[in-house]
Design a protein around this nucleic acid. Sequence first.
DNA 1: TAGAAAAGTTGAACTAGTTCAACCATTTTT
DNA 2: AAAAATGGTTGAACTAGTTCAACTTTTCTA
Lengths: 196, 196
Amino acid sequence: MGRTTSIDSYVQQFVNLDNEELATFSAAFKEIRAQKRQFLIQPNFVARHRFFVLKGALRAYVVDEEGQDRTIQLAIEQWWISDYNSYMFQQPASMFVMAVEDSTLLQISFEDEQRLKSSNYKYETFFRIIAERAAAFMQRRVITNLTKSAEQRYDLFLEKYPAMVNRFPQYVIASYLGMTTEFLSRIRNQKLRFKG
Amino acid sequence: MGRTTSIDSYVQQFVNLDNEELATFSAAFKEIRAQKRQFLIQPNFVARHRFFVLKGALRAYVVDEEGQDRTIQLAIEQWWISDYNSYMFQQPASMFVMAVEDSTLLQISFEDEQRLKSSNYKYETFFRIIAERAAAFMQRRVITNLTKSAEQRYDLFLEKYPAMVNRFPQYVIASYLGMTTEFLSRIRNQKLRFKG
DNA sequence: TAGAAAAGTTGAACTAGTTCAACCATTTTT
DNA sequence: AAAAATGGTTGAACTAGTTCAACTTTTCTA
C-alpha cells in the first residue's frame, strides 16, 4: 500500500518546490510504523532522527529526579517530534519519545537532513522556517507557563489544540501543562459542575 | 569612534564568509545606543527589529494580568534579543524589551533580514542555525521549568550563566526563573548561612 | 552630599497546587 | 467473561512558593 498521506503539501506551505525537488526531498524520508507504547528515542542514546507524523500520536517526555514523567512535546498529524537538543547537536538524549497510538511516521536522519540543507537553497530555507516557528512556539510556551494559572493553561490548551485533547490520556496532558493528573481532574470536574 | 566590537567573529562561528560577504552582512545592521531604562520594543507595536548586543544588558518581559513583570529573555554581549513571535510573524508584540544598562546594539530590520536570507545561501544557513539553537535553548528552558524546584533553577542559572548574575537586579533574575524576588532572597540567604 | 528612588530583606499569614491513599471506571488481554 | 492493567476521581493532609507590609540598604540624581 502507498503512503497514508505525505509531507508534500506540508513543505509546499513554506517553499515552492518543482516536482523534481519535491521528489528528492521526499526521498530523504523513510516511512516507518510505530506501535502504541513503542519508543523511538531513549535517554542516553543520540537521537539520530526527527519524525514527521503522518498518522497517529506521540509524546516526548523526561523523567525527573522524583521519577515523575514530564511531557515536553505532543505530536499528532503534521507535527514534528524529536529530542531537539539531542538531534540538533547529536548529543545523548534526555527524553523518551513514545507512540501513544499506532502511528505512521516519516523519519529523516541527521545526516540526510544535513545533506538536503546543503544541496539546495530551498531546503535550507524550509528548515530555517520550521526552526524559527519552533523557537517562536517554544517562547510562547515559556510565556504561558510563567504567566498563567493551571486552569488558564488548560483553557488555553483546549482553545488552541482542541484536536489533541481527545488523543492523549489526561495524565499526559496534565504533565504537558505542568500540573498533576489529580489537579487537572479537579479542574475538569469543577467546570462540569458549573457549566454543564 | 568605531564599533565597540562587531558581529563578524560571531557570524564566522557558524558560516564561512569571505570579506565581501562579511561586509554585506554587517552593512545590514545599524549600530544604535540604548540608555538604561530605554524601551526598544513595546506591547501592541510590531517588533520591527531584532538586536544583537555588542555591549550592555537588556531584558524582555511581559506584564501579566495581575500587573506582575515576567522576564522572558535576558541578553548581554553576544546574545540576541527581541519579541520573536512579533518579529518573525510581524504581529503586535506582547513584550517590552528594555535596556538594563546603557547599551550598544546592532539592529537589523525584518525586511533587511529577509533580503539577506534570500540574497545568499550562506546568510540563510546562518539564520537557520541560530533559529535551531534558539529552539533548542527554549526547549531546555521548558524542561527546566517543568522538572526543577526554585532553588535548583537558581543553582542551574548560576552554573550556566555566571556572567549574567551580576548584571541584572535580583528581581529580574527571580522573574526570569519563575519565582518572586522575596523567595530568591530567601534562597540566597539560606545558602550564605549554610555555606559561607 | 542630601534626598529620593530603586533594590533587597524579613516575618507572618496564606494559597495554589501536590501528595498519598483508597477507590471506581474503562480498556486490554487471556 | 474473568482477570489484569491502565486511567481517572475524591478527600484530607500537606508544602513550596506567594503575598503583604514594614523595614533596611544601595544607587542615582540634583
